[in-house]
């Protein structure tokens, strides 16, 4: 017994999602077609709309429906501060933390040599032109504190050093409100290595 071709192609299409193998793709397809046809139609329309409407903001490279996103178009934000993050989710998190009133640049990835992701696979060239627009004075590197995020931070630093920009890296250490007794040893050890002078 074989599946009809359109079912097979739906299952194959669902396998593009990360972490979805043939089994889960089949389960998803059956669910959409059998249990939630309205949801399936919403999904199809939303995907179609996102694909035709979304582009990358000219300035910060995040997803946007306009050439320049709302955040980059906001003249009340500091134009001399540029915060570099890996993904749009990181930008949203920084916005929620109300800690940065400048602008952003979203690399849309991180360098991970052992996964075959190199400097050409993140938006370094776009960052180069954005950071050197003559208005930006400080670039804050806010990539993750994973080995890959740190490697990305190194490449960003190498790219932008000696160009009259102030380059900074967000700090790592003890969590706010953190008690030594409950923090994980890696965090605690690094906080000790990176202790600051009082």
């Amino acid at each position: 017994m074989k599946n009809p071709p359109s079912l097979d192609s739906l299952i194959a299409a669902l396998k593009v999602l990360p972490g979805v193998g043939p089994k889960s793709a089949q389960r998803m397809a059956f669910h959409l077609l059998q249990r939630d046809k309205a949801g399936a139609e919403r999904l199809a329309r939303a995907l179609d709309k996102a694909l035709s409407n979304l582009t990358h903001c000219e300035r910060c490279n995040t997803f946007s429906e306009t050439p320049v996103c709302n955040l980059c178009a906001d003249a009340s934000r500091r134009q001399d501060l540029l915060c570099v993050v890996e993904m749009p989710a990181d930008l949203l998190m920084l916005e929620q933390a109300h800690c940065h009133d400048g602008l952003y640049f979203v690399l849309m990835g991180r360098i991970s040599p052992l996964d075959g992701v190199g400097p050409r696979d993140v938006a370094l060239e776009k960052l180069f032109h954005r950071a050197l627009d003559g208005v930006v004075e400080e670039v804050i590197v806010a990539t993750n504190f994973t080995a890959e995020g740190e490697a990305t931070a190194h490449v960003v630093t190498e790219l932008l050093k000696n160009r009259g920009l102030k380059l900074t890296r967000i700090a790592r250490g003890m969590p706010v409100g953190g008690e030594l007794e409950y923090v994980d040893p890696g965090t605690l050890a690094q906080a000790m290595f990176e202790r600051r002078k009082l």
């Binding site: 040599p113 190194h154 690094q190």
Partner: peptide, 16 residues
Amino acid sequence: PQLSGMALICGFYLNE
């Protein structure tokens, strides 16, 4: 200490 900068890139080389 966590490797950073060029030491980190060299570390990736060892691992690869």
